[in-house]
Design a protein around this nucleic acid. Structure first.
Length: 570
RNA sequence: GCCCCUAUAGUUCAAUGGAUAGAAUGCGAGAUUGCGGAUCUCGUGAUUCAGGUUCGAAUCCUGAUGGGGGCACCA
């Protein structure tokens, strides 16, 4: 990547020229304003204070020293007040990049495969409830992170950790025993189970004897009660069928699904060992806690009734993951609300010697809020099933396809509606900063115009349309023939793809890549309007075909990293 | 009460401490004998407030205000 080459040579040159042991951190950025070059370094500004020199003088000294290197690497430099060094790529190096893209295709921009193993836990629904709109972000962001981190060279283990164990299943079983009807559940399993759970939770409010009843049922489940175990297995089976249906629509593939219940057999020993080693303490009421420094509360790992708790299972999971996959790191793609809880789990894991703090990371994100900015709550039963949202998106997209391309076959229309509708929803999420809240709004989410996946997909389809109409060739070009502004802007943008993907992966910020793809589509559309391709003179035509071929490759690959499909027709 | 996230055009979002704060949408004006008008071009309009640090602050620090979330035997 050119950016890291520039950074490295600047560090090297500065330390040599000014006798520095440590060059302070500085940036080589990709300026938004093209007049500021293709890369801009602020090293002279950063060094000015330390060296007590005029930043412009420092920039000039560095630039002179770099002259030969720049020339060799196809860069023209420029010193600009107050002390920026701007680098411009020349047409020869741009041609080389274009060639590289056409050769490597969807491998262009890939990182070296040696960075270590990272486990990413995401999309962990609770059984006996449908996947809801509130699972959208963890699922979509999680999948994008899996794809991008893998692309830049990490070995990635993708993992879902469903909530299939705990007191809530005591509540569910208690509700079922009170009011459940097997034949009704067979008809519509998830909907009925959710109803029972909600009914019981509501009835238990202000009725401690019912709360105790729920806990008792879970305790029995944990002790291996046959009837409760049978019910639990049944509920779980139905749930996974339901999840997989939605994942299929969403195009999400999670390699491993290991629920909380998996860790049940090892929990007793885990807690007992912790007590034995003096890392956990038994309270007067029979509960067991891990005392935590720098935390307002200790963490409970066994309840006073002797049953385990979520944290206990999390700790067992951490131990298991490090062992099974020899992981260097575990990332939790989980909502901001989980921050305190996960912090407690991480601190507990460190206290028990299961992990170093730096190996555990919480990739947090804002909430999907109900219209009006309120939280969706399952207890009140107003959960919005993800499946409904996805179906609605497909239907809206279908209407648009009908209007635009009525001649396509029904089958093809459906396929395009799926690609466009699902893409729109995913992009709506991924194009925004992870941390901000999203207010759920059908119109905005499904708006197929403007800064959206369909805009990018449309650009792709137009390129593909030209490619279909021409007979090629698609890889023969002369870079000196690509000299229109629109062409140069596009090639330059393509050059930055590896750098953007690397940033996006490193910061766990898919919106960086989403933004890049929007800009790319914009440049493609501008080129499309300004520059004729099929009607151009032969050599120019071939060069332009090579260029749009490369652009199409990058769009397709970039969207793919976000988990979004691109259709050749739409 | 304590803790976490957050505040940027009317609205929805961008912007590693860096150059003239970018888009989308909305509104206004324009572009089609031509490769797909779901497009393109131009215009309009914003950093919550008060201090501080810095050559330079939307960004960092302190305080205030607004919004969301969380605070051990739920997950």
């Amino acid at each position: 990547m050119m950016r890291s080459k520039i950074k490295n040579i600047l560090v090297e040159t500065a330390s040599k020229k000014f006798g520095l042991k440590q060059v302070p951190d500085f940036s080589v950025e990709i300026p938004e304003n093209s007049a500021h070059g293709d890369y801009a370094a602020n090293i002279a500004l950063v060094l000015a204070r330390q060296l007590k020199k005029n930043p412009l003088d420092i920039a000039r000294i560095l630039d002179m020293e770099l002259e030969a290197w720049s020339l060799k690497h196809g860069l023209k430099t420029e010193i600009v007040p107050p002390g920026f060094i701007n680098f411009f790529l020349n047409s020869k190096i741009l041609g080389e990049t274009l060639k590289d893209i056409l050769k490597k295709k969807n491998k262009f921009g890939r990182g070296q495969p040696q960075q270590g193993t990272i486990v990413i836990e995401y999309s962990s629904p609770n059984i006996a409830k449908p996947l809801g709109i509130h699972h959208l972000r963890t699922t979509v962001i999680g999948q994008a992170l899996v794809n991008t981190l893998r692309f830049v060279g990490w070995k990635v283990v993708s993992l879902s950790f469903p909530g299939d164990w705990g007191t809530q299943f005591g509540n569910l079983i208690a509700g079922y025993k009170r009011w459940g009807k097997p034949e009704k559940i067979k008809q519509n399993p998830i909907k009925e189970l959710l109803k029972l759970y909600v009914m019981f939770s509501q009835a238990a409010q202000g009725h401690p004897e019912m709360t105790a009843e729920g806990r008792r049922e879970f305790k029995k489940l944990e002790e291996g009660d046959k009837e409760n175990l049978r019910l639990w297995k049944w509920f779980a089976r139905e749930s996974y069928k339901d999840f997989n249906k939605v994942y299929k629509i969403l195009g999400v593939k999670i390699e491993h699904t290991i629920g909380e219940s998996f860790y049940e057999p090892e929990l007793k020993k885990l807690v007992d060992d912790a007590i034995k080693k003096g890392l956990a303490q038994k309270g007067a009421d029979g509960s067991v806690v891990i005392p935590l420094k720098d935390s307002p509360t200790p963490e409970i790992i066994r309840k006073s009734d002797g049953a385990t708790i979520y944290t206990t299972r999390e700790l067992a999971a951490i131990r298991h993951r490090f062992k099974k996959w020899r992981a260097d790191k575990i990332l939790y793609v989980a909502a901001n609300q989980q921050t305190f809880h996960l912090e407690q789990v991480f601190k507990s894991a460190v206290a028990l010697g299961l992990a170093k703090r730096a190996q555990l990371g919480h990739v947090k994100f804002g909430m999907v809020l109900a219209p009006g900015g309120k939280k969706f709550a399952t207890r009140e039963g107003n959960l919005i099933p993800m499946e409904d949202v996805l179906k609605e998106a497909e239907e809206r997209a279908k209407k648009i396809v009908e209007g635009l391309n009525p001649k396509l076959s029904q089958k093809e229309k459906n396929k395009i509606a799926h690609t466009v509708g699902i893409g729109a929803i995913k992009f709506f999420d991924l194009s925004q900063n992870r941390l901000s809240d999203i207010v759920f709004d059908w119109n905005k989410m499904l708006n197929l115009k403007g800064a959206s996946a369909p805009y990018i997909q449309y650009s792709y389809a137009r390129l593909k349309s030209i490619i279909r109409k021409s007979k090629g060739p698609f890889t023969q070009f002369k870079s000196e023939l690509l000299k229109e502004n629109a062409e140069i802007a596009l090639i330059k943008h393509l050059t930055h793809f590896p750098e953007i993907v690397a940033d996006s992966a490193q910061k766990y910020e898919p919106n960086k890549l989403a933004e890049y793809l929007l800009r790319l589509a914009e440049k493609v559309n501008t080129l499309y309007e300004k520059v004729p391709i099929l009607s151009a003179e032969k050599e120019i035509k071939n060069s332009r075909l090579a260029l749009i071929n490369a652009a199409a490759l990058i769009i397709k690959n970039g969207l793919g990293l976000l988990g979004i499909e691109a259709s050749e027709r739409m």
